[in-house]
Design a binder for these strands. Structure first.
Lengths: 186, 186
DNA sequence: GGCAACCTACCTTCTAGTAGGTATATTCAA
DNA sequence: TTGAATATACCTACTAGAAGGTAGGTTGCC
C-alpha cells in the first residue's frame, strides 16, 4: 500500500472516530511513522487531505454500487448497504460522510463543495436501492423515494451516534427496524 | 440575563453550528464582550462548560416535556417535538445533542457521561410521545417503541445535517415524511 | 540530472488555562 | 454606623503546548 493510501485510510479511521477537526497531522505522524512534513508533501494542506478523502469515499460508494448490481433488488440490496456500516458500528465510529457534514461549517468553500457532493452521491445510491426495490415489489412505501432516502440514510447515520451510548447495539436495532418497516406487506 | 446564562446560550449557538471542539473561549470573548479569563471565572475548564451545557439542555427538554403534556397525544405532540428543531434547521445548525455525541470520543469520562445522560433523556422523551400516541390510537406502528424512537430521533437529527447541503429544506421534508408515516392508517 | 519521498528544524497562530490585580458589593462585628 | 473581612466579577498579562504549515537539506531510484 502506498504512503498516500495509508494516510487516507488512517484519516478515514480518525475522522470516523473524532471528526475532521478532531485529528491532526501529528496523529498521522504517530500512526504512519513518517514525519509531519512528509505528510504535507502528499497533502500540502489539510483541505487537500479533506478533498482527497471525499474522493476516496465517493469511489468507495461507486464500488459498493457495482457490488449491489450483482444482488437481487429489494431486501438483499438494502441489507448490503446497511452492512457496509456494521464495522463502523462495532467500533463505536460515526459515518465518515456525516462526520464531515458536522464540521462543514468550518471548511473552506472548496472542501464544503466536495463534502456536499459526497453526501449527494450517497443519497442517490440509497434512493436507487429503494426505487429498484419498489419496482420489483419487494419494498413497500408511499413516500416519494427522495424523501424516504433522506429519512433512511439520516436514521442509520444518527443510529451510529446513538450506538455510542449505553445500551449499545443501537445500530443493529435501528437497521432491523428499517428493513422490517420497508419490507412489510402494505 | 446573567453572564453565566449568556455564556451558555452563546455556547449553544456555537456548538450547534461548529460542534464542541469547533469553538473556543476566544469566540465567547468576542461574542459576549468580556475577557477570556472572566469566562474561566464562570467555567474554570471547558469540560465544566460542557457539563453545564448538558444540564441546560436537559432542563430544556424537561420544559418541553411539560409543554407537551398540555397538548393532545399523537400528532400534535409529535409536531411540537419536531417544531423544536425548526429554528436549528432554518439556520443550518445541527442538533446540540448530536453535535456533542459527535465529539464525545475526545471528551473526559465525566463529560462523556453527561452527554450520554442527555441523549438518553431526549430518547425517553420521544419514546413517551410515541407510546402515548399509540395508546390513543393516533399513531400506528408495529415496531417496539424504543426501536422506533431511535429511528425517528436519528432521522431528524441526521436530517438537520442533510439540511446543510443543497437542495436545502431536508429537515422539513423529513419531518413531514415521518409524521405521514406514523399517522397513516394501518 | 531530475524527481519523489523523506528528513530536521523551524515559524506563526491559536488553544486552554494561570497568576495576580482591581472595583464593587455583601456580611458582620465593634 | 462605621469599618474590616469576604466574595463576586471582572481585568491585564502571561504560559505551555498543539495546531497547520514552511524552508531547506538528504537519499535513492529512473
Amino acid at each position: 500500500m502506498s504512503t498516500r493510501e495509508k494516510i487516507i485510510l488512517l484519516s478515514n479511521h480518525l475522522i470516523q472516530q473524532r471528526g475532521f477537526q478532531g485529528f491532526s497531522y501529528a496523529d498521522l505522524e504517530a500512526g504512519i511513522g513518517i514525519r509531519k512534513a512528509s505528510i504535507h508533501h502528499h497533502f500540502p494542506s489539510k483541505t487537500d487531505l479533506g478533498i482527497a478523502y471525499c474522493d476516496y469515499k465517493r469511489a468507495d460508494f461507486k464500488a459498493l454500487e457495482a457490488e449491489l448490481q450483482k444482488l437481487p433488488a429489494g431486501v438483499p440490496q438494502l441489507h448490503a448497504y446497511l452492512d457496509a456500516f456494521a464495522d463502523c458500528a462495532a467500533q463505536g465510529q460515526m459515518c465518515g460522510v456525516y462526520a464531515m457534514l458536522s464540521d462543514s461549517h468550518l471548511f473552506s468553500p472548496e472542501l464544503q463543495t466536495a463534502v456536499y457532493q459526497l453526501a449527494q452521491t450517497e443519497q442517490q445510491l440509497l434512493q436507487d436501492i429503494l426505487v429498484a426495490g419498489q419496482r420489483s415489489a419487494a419494498l413497500h412505501f408511499a413516500q416519494p423515494p427522495a424523501e424516504l432516502a433522506m429519512v433512511v440514510s439520516s436514521a442509520i447515520k444518527g443510529a451510529l451516534l446513538l450506538n455510542r451510548i449505553p445500551p449499545h447495539g443501537a445500530y443493529e436495532r435501528a437497521a432491523k427496524a428499517i428493513v422490517d418497516w420497508l419490507s412489510a406487506a402494505p
